[in-house]
Design a protein around this nucleic acid. Sequence first.
DNA 1: AATAAATTTAGCACATAAGCTAAATAAAAA
DNA 2: TTTTTATTTAGCTTATGTGCTAAATTTATT
Lengths: 95, 95
Amino acid sequence: MDAYEAVFSALAHPARRRILMTLNFERGSMSAGAIAGVFEHSWATTSRHLRVLEDAKLIRSESDGRNRIYYIEYKRFDLLRDWLAWFSEGTGGTK
Amino acid sequence: MDAYEAVFSALAHPARRRILMTLNFERGSMSAGAIAGVFEHSWATTSRHLRVLEDAKLIRSESDGRNRIYYIEYKRFDLLRDWLAWFSEGTGGTK
DNA sequence: AATAAATTTAGCACATAAGCTAAATAAAAA
DNA sequence: TTTTTATTTAGCTTATGTGCTAAATTTATT
């Protein structure tokens, strides 16, 4: 699948944007449980949001014993920055 | 509705991102018909995509006789830039 | 006034997304 | 080795989004 498609649709859900904000606020890494603890949703629902974000490569994970630690993939946000660059006023579509 | 919600969900659909790209390529303004002409979709479908983009304030329109001209709202993209700024590597969430 | 052109709105059908609970896995602790 | 803790997967239901065609609306032309 297209990278833009994955990233933009991952960002379309407010819960997923909040997950990214939360992770970032905690300096980039948190366990699945710690993330789920922040949300109203069931743990299973949050888990699926995490999978969507991971498929979009906006986060990555490692398992650590019985925990799973999620990390923000800061580099991936450059995809968005590049896309946005097309819309810099005055450039007429030129990066 | 939340501005982020409107903008991110507007950007979630590939046809809408293409509309923005097309408009930008044409230096920011086009008639509804010219936009619809670029797409495979029915005119009615494209018209609804335009409405979603307009509700998100990513575009704006004026009617000109029996045509409707759409303009990119370049300033609106700053909302995205500001959001992205939270995820600048090394800033630890500080703008 | 009647017709034509440009565009949107309405209404319907289908697909995808999102929420839940319950069951499955996997590793740690007892 | 049984139980507990952490997390994901499966299956189901409901909500939302998207596409279509047909009808409505609006302005220009004849």
